[in-house]
């Protein structure tokens, strides 16, 4: 991360710096937020057709807001471009996803897009996709076997969320961390960025042992775990913040804080699901910030990358970063409009 940032930089500037990696249409405008819909309109028309092409889409699950939005956007964009999607949802089961990929390889589609999942499980099978001569693209999965990975800049997300956290804590306090999905690369990046920032704020400490978030029953489980840890640290001020690599544990944690009357503790998460942005907007809620991604745009751009590649553009950048930004109490109302979660 050698690029310079102000603590909460406008996305547009950063995006411009990364112009080589960003699809032109995603470049952000405005001060602090972005306007993807307007910016993309022109670009959509220039995407090559997928007529007669079959595109395999394999996702680990669609039970989370982010997952379903990114997945549905891929299916819709393949259809919009005239192609036939073979859309496979593994229902959050690694074994199912591997079986679907095996069969998908036998179906020999023109390209395969893989979204999320555990890298160590997937990687041998992603390699087999390439060995079978099928172009592989990924969404939120960084692997050398992928021609292009379309994703939020999770380095930026992790770093900005961490900076916000230490700023809110004024550089001092204990942090409860949910770290159950380190095997998922995007979660690992966010966590590593948190650690990288905390290294320079020695008075901000992660409480050991870290908590493990789970799927399913994420909200209930986070609620139970946070309630237990609040009992273990009963004094106000003994916990300053709760951090999670996505925003569903944040919901359970926030509810637990309200129920226990410990609203001095702040919560932080990633994704920007509508219910969490709403929580952040509420001035009385302990939900302090959430990094908002644009899952629909990510899914759509992944398919457009496939279309360009199949039309002969073999010079794609290995990563397409889609802008994300930090939603806070101050900008939440505006963010809802920008994210399409409230009338503009």
């Amino acid at each position: 991360m050698s690029l310079p940032h102000s603590p909460i930089p406008p996305l547009g500037r950063r995006s411009a710096l990364k112009a080589g990696l960003l699809a032109a249409g995603t470049a952000a405008f405005g001060s602090g937020l972005l306007r993807p819909a307007t910016a993309l309109a022109a670009d959509d028309a220039s995407v090559p057709s997928l007529a007669g092409k079959r595109i395999g889409i394999t996702v680990i699950g669609t039970d989370h807001f982010w997952d379903i939005k990114a997945y549905q956007a891929q299916v819709d964009e393949v259809k919009r471009l005239g192609g036939e999607p073979i859309a496979l949802d593994a229902g959050r089961n690694d074994k199912t996803q591997i079986a679907q990929i095996q069969t998908l390889i036998a179906q020999k589609p023109d390209a395969i897009i893989e979204q999320l999942g555990t890298l160590s499980v997937l990687d041998p099978w992603l390699k087999k996709i390439r060995d079978a001569g099928i172009p592989l693209f990924t969404v939120d999965t960084a692997t050398p076997h992928s021609i292009n990975n379309t994703t939020s800049d999770n380095f930026y997300i992790g770093e900005q969320l961490a900076l916000r956290l230490v700023s809110d804590l004024r550089g001092k306090g204990n942090v409860v961390v949910f770290n159950g999905f380190y095997g998922v690369p995007v979660c690992a990046i966010r966590y590593d960025q948190l650690k990288a920032v905390l290294k320079y704020f020695p008075d901000v400490k992660i409480i050991e042992p870290e908590l493990r978030d789970v799927i399913p029953n994420t909200v209930q489980d986070a609620y139970t775990q946070i309630t237990a840890i609040l009992n273990k640290f009963p004094d106000k001020g003994s916990i300053g913040a709760i951090w999670s690599a996505w925003d569903v544990p944040q919901v359970g944690a926030t509810q637990a804080l309200v129920a226990a009357g410990r609203t001095e503790v702040r919560t932080y998460g990633v994704d920007g699901s509508p219910d969490v942005v709403e929580l952040v907007k509420d001035p009385k809620s302990p939900a302090s910030a959430v990094a908002a991604q644009q899952p629909s745009l990510i899914g759509k751009l992944a398919v457009q990358n496939v279309a360009r590649y199949l039309a002969g553009d073999h010079d794609l950048a290995p990563t397409t970063f889609v802008p994300a930004f930090i939603v806070t109490k101050e900008n939440a109302a505006e963010a809802q409009k920008q994210l399409g979660q409230a009338p503009a």
């Binding site: 959050r92 089961n93 690694d94 074994k95 591997i98 555990t118 160590s120 499980v121 990687d123």
Partner: peptide, 12 residues
Amino acid sequence: LLSGSTTGSGDM
């Protein structure tokens, strides 16, 4: 098959 032990075996 999965290059390791994974969660969610109970689903089977």
